[in-house]
Design a protein around this nucleic acid. Structure first.
Length: 557
RNA sequence: GCGGGUGUAGCUCAGUGGUAGAGCGUCACGUUGCCAACGUGAAUGUCGUGGGUUCGAGCCCCAUCACCCGCUCCA
């Protein structure tokens, strides 16, 4: 059998119940996936580890201080104005035309300026005189069979010069008093079947005819209420972040938080990706684990570095080998216009030679809060009461409002009232789940036999321990059942008494269960069981009474 | 969206126009004494889906869907 690692992993995930294709019995749906019984446990453990480590128990800040984190859980469908303010609606609101051959998108209103600058046009325009409409057929023919082949392989003039030029000649000779202008000539060059299609407009990249202009949005749309009118149009959120931003004032007013602090959210997001690809890596429905950390502008770089390092280390701690994990500072040209800095934390998946993004840690400045302040009219700034209390005596009044009337300098006001800067560590829960699966997958040879084992970090493993009576007699199943009932109150454990114990061990290896507890003959004598380690295969004896503590200790490594 | 490939049992695959198959897995019974044991038996398929050609289609043709690879896209 010659399967790639990725194919083996996909097969195992199906076979053991980690991941299924969405609506599979109906042929599936491109870009959508389901988690099975083991997969949902794995993903829950990942999300819970994130929530525990980032929200409930984050490590100390850069100066050793406690850091404040709270969570929210926002609706997926929000007021559409949110997405206008965030920029998601605007970015692709312009009608876009798609090339029928190469698939590239061109903004409809920019087509001619772009064409004027494109490579094939600049080459072609030297071969005729657009002012007079005069054409030199042999010269254009030569271009079509030479440079044109390379520069615009799908241009009608290149694909079928005889026909294309005959249409053009008919036009030029038929109306000698009204020579075609550059635009019309370009359309002729792009048209192969004039009578069937009419004049076409070419793709700036390859020359093929462009499709009709259509508004293009990566956001899924729906409607509220009965009538599906434009007024009722809503969007499925393409990211969880905006729910946090728009709730910034609510959280501030209800939770007695002071800057700096962070708000976290875990939840589904939706993007109508052009090409979903690579298993669950790029799906149209996915889950994000996002933090917006709000801080004073003067401290923002410090916090950016804090989160960047913390997030990278988190992955390492959960078992991602450092060699496969690549933090990558984005270049200036890559950055969104509002971002001061962004680090992509990338992972080298088996399906790609290039590392792929697991998480982006972005310094977003005051962009988002300012956008929402502008669009909603709601004040999104923060008033630093401590700073004001400290300085008010020297300002000559107890009232900040009163002081503002004296027209203080902007920089002075900003010491007390300002729009916080934001550091955004935005992680993909499904992407990390896939990374964990890839990282865990291993095959090793034991006595000429291949053992497939998922080496999950114990904290993430779907099943923590299996309880196995060595044989089904002499009271072993009864003892095993009791152990099972005790342990399942605390851990996700699995009971199995079917078949030979070796086979049961191997089954648990494929599920990634870190520990197997076996009830054997000696158990009957001294109330101990063996605990088998998934990775080392080493077995130790542990008293039944100490099992819970022993497992807890091992899982919390 | 383009080009190439694939689609047959839960998984991996064989099956080139004439009775739907194998290995593994699953289940039952027996056996069981620590790393995928053994014996016996069983279940499992609209051959991705829909059309067409044919006396007859898993196989040929058309369309469509999904997955994989390469482009493209990923605000």
């Amino acid at each position: 059998m010659d399967m790639s690692k990725m194919e083996k992993l996909v097969s195992l995930c199906k076979r053991r119940g980690f991941i299924f294709q969405s609506s599979e019995i109906y042929g599936g749906l491109n870009g959508f996936w389901d988690y099975g019984p083991l997969g949902v446990e794995l993903k829950r453990n990942i999300k819970e580890a994130w929530w525990q480590d980032m929200v409930r128990n984050p490590p100390p800040g850069p100066d050793g201080q406690e850091i404040s984190m709270v969570g929210v859980d926002c609706s997926i469908i929000m007021n559409p104005k949110v997405w206008i303010a965030s920029g998601h609606v605007g970015t692709f609101a312009d009608p876009t035309r798609k090339c029928t051959k190469c698939g590239r998108f061109v903004r409809a209103d920019q087509l001619w300026p772009i064409l004027a600058e494109c490579a094939w046009m600049n080459s072609l325009i030297q071969e005729f005189t657009p002012i007079t409409g005069h054409i030199d057929t042999p010269r254009l023919m030569k271009w079509a069979k030479g440079k044109g082949q390379r520069l615009a392989p799908n241009l009608a003039l290149v694909r079928n010069p005889e026909v294309t030029l005959s249409f053009l000649a008919t036009r030029v000779n038929g109306q000698p008093d009204a020579p075609p202008d550059l635009m019309e000539m370009t359309r002729y060059f792009a048209t192969e079947q004039l009578h069937a299609t009419g004049l076409q407009e070419p793709c700036p990249v390859c020359g093929a005819p462009l499709g009709d202009a259509k508004p293009f949005s990566l956001m899924f749309e729906s409607h509220t209420g009965v009538e599906k009118t434009d007024d009722a149009k809503v969007y499925l959120r393409p990211e969880t972040a905006q729910g946090i931003f728009v709730n910034f004032p609510n959280v501030l007013d209800s939770s007695r938080l002071k800057l700096p602090f962070g708000i976290a959210q875990v939840g589904k997001a939706f993007r109508n990706e052009v090409t979903p690809r690579n298993y669950i890596f790029r799906s149209r429905e996915f889950e994000q684990m996002e933090i917006e950390f709000f801080c004073h502008p003067a401290e923002s770089m410090k916090w950016y570095e804090y989160w960047r390092d913390l997030r990278k280390n988190w992955y390492t701690r959960l078992g991602i080998k450092s060699g496969n994990l690549r933090p990558r500072e984005q270049g200036k040209e890559e950055l969104a216009h509002y971002s001061i800095g962004t680090t992509d934390i990338e992972y080298l998946f088996p399906f790609s030679e290039e590392p792929q993004e697991l998480e982006g840690v972005a310094h977003r400045g005051a962009y988002d809060l300012t956008q929402h302040a502008t669009h909603s009219g709601k004040d999104m700034s923060y008033f630093d009461e401590e700073a004001w209390e400290r300085d008010k005596a020297s300002r000559g009044t107890n009232s900040f409002k009163e002081w503002l009337k004296s027209n203080p300098a902007k920089e002075e006001v900003a010491k007390y009232s300002f729009v916080p800067h934001v550091i955004e560590p935005s992680a993909g829960a499904d992407r990390f789940t896939l990374a964990v699966l890839c990282e865990a997958f291993d095959e090793e040879e034991i006595k000429g036999d291949v053992r497939t084992v998922m080496r999950f970090h114990p904290r993430l493993a779907p099943i923590k321990a299996a309880i196995l009576p060595l044989v089904n007699k002499e009271g072993m199943p009864e003892i095993a059942q009791k152990i099972y009932r005790d342990l399942k109150k605390t851990f996700n454990v699995f009971y199995d008494d079917k078949g030979a114990v070796g086979r049961r061990y191997r089954r648990m290896d494929e599920a990634g269960t870190p520990y197997c507890l076996t009830i054997d003959g000696q158990t009957l004598q001294d109330q101990t069981v063996t605990i088998r380690d998934r990775d080392t295969l080493v077995q130790e004896r542990v008293a039944i009474a100490e099992l819970e503590a022993v497992i807890r200790k091992r899982i919390d490594v």
